[in-house]
């Protein structure tokens, strides 16, 4: 059943479009990074600009990654939301769900197979995209990543958070509404994820209300924590620019508790989705 759903997803124009967009994105990224690679770094050269004299190729790699990261994340999030919000509603609307359920398989298996397929496709495309960014960057600006396992785990948690949310919503509201709500939550979570990092940089300066709102949003939709984990795992160890100094703190470490919470939250939402699916008549 899972393979059938994957087969079906791979035939969809939206997935094909995302694959083409990924290839085009990586092509442009390659072009941009190769053009930027002509910069000459002279660490320790006092005659140059004092800031520039401190930077090395690892810092250029850091800049390239944190520039490309949000764009790549937007593409993958959009794909995840679109295919995640349509998979179950389409099978139900076209009358296929009753056919699948009439076969000798449990509801849990049908639910997981159908809903896991969008996660698997998005994860695969995300791997290709971020691996492409990583490889292209390393070719022109050699560096060592902080933690590849961190990238993989965080990526799965990031996508699972979006997926669990859109899957549950697609069973409760119309698919367009589920898309819009998840897009909105993803955008707000990304913005407040940055605000959270800034607040860590300047502790005590943030208004209490902002602190509260930021925390609530992090609890309500923790996808941003996973995304920041991806970027943290990818960026160079050797970069001179240290944690929290980069734009919106995207180079800051993500506490493991945040990732564990996001994973737990995804499982709870998926459980709620199954609870809803289990009680549905088709």
């Amino acid at each position: 059943m899972f393979l059938n759903c994957i087969e079906q997803l791979l035939r969809r124009k939206i997935v094909l479009t995302a694959v083409v967009a990924t290839a085009v994105f990586l092509g442009f990224y390659w072009w941009g990074v190769s053009a930027a690679s002509s910069i000459e770094f002279n660490p320790g050269n006092d005659s140059a600009d004092p800031v520039m004299s401190m930077l090395g190729s690892a810092d250029a790699a850091l800049a390239a990654i944190i520039t490309a990261g949000p764009l790549a994340a937007t593409l993958i999030t959009a794909l995840m939301i679109v295919i995640g919000s349509t998979m179950l509603p389409e099978e139900i609307g076209q009358g296929r769900m009753s056919f699948w359920l009439s076969l000798p398989q449990s509801r849990l298996r049908v639910f997981l197979s159908t809903s896991l397929a969008p996660l698997a496709v998005s994860f695969a495309l995300s791997l290709i995209l971020f691996a492409g960014i990583f490889v292209i960057t390393r070719i022109y600006f050699p560096f060592s990543p902080r933690s590849i396992p961190m990238v993989l785990i965080s990526m799965l948690i990031w996508l699972a958070s979006v997926w669990a949310s859109v899957t549950l919503l697609s069973l409760i509201v119309k698919k367009v509404a589920s898309m819009l709500i998840t897009f909105f939550l993803a955008a707000v979570a990304s913005m407040f994820g940055g605000v959270y990092e800034m607040m860590k940089m300047f502790p005590g300066d943030a208004p209490d209300a902002l602190v509260t709102v930021t925390r609530v949003i992090m609890y309500v939709f923790p996808a941003d924590r996973g995304y920041r984990g991806v970027i943290y795992g990818m960026i160079p160890k050797e970069a001179v620019i240290t944690e929290n100094l980069a734009f919106f703190g995207v180079t800051a470490a993500v506490p493991p508790a945040h990732l564990i919470y996001a994973a737990f939250w995804s499982i709870v939402l998926l459980g709620l989705g199954y609870w809803k699916f289990r009680s549905m008549d088709f």
């Binding site: 079906q8 076209q94 009358g95 296929r96 009753s98 056919f99 009439s102 076969l103 000798p104 449990s106």
Partner: peptide
């Protein structure tokens, strides 16, 4: 139980397969 459907076949009234299949 899924076992009840092991040797059961069903043709729904409205069934639309994906157009590519």
């Amino acid at each position: 139980s899924p076992l009840s459907r092991k040797s059961v076949r069903y043709l729904p009234e409205y069934l639309t397969f994906p157009s590519w299949v």
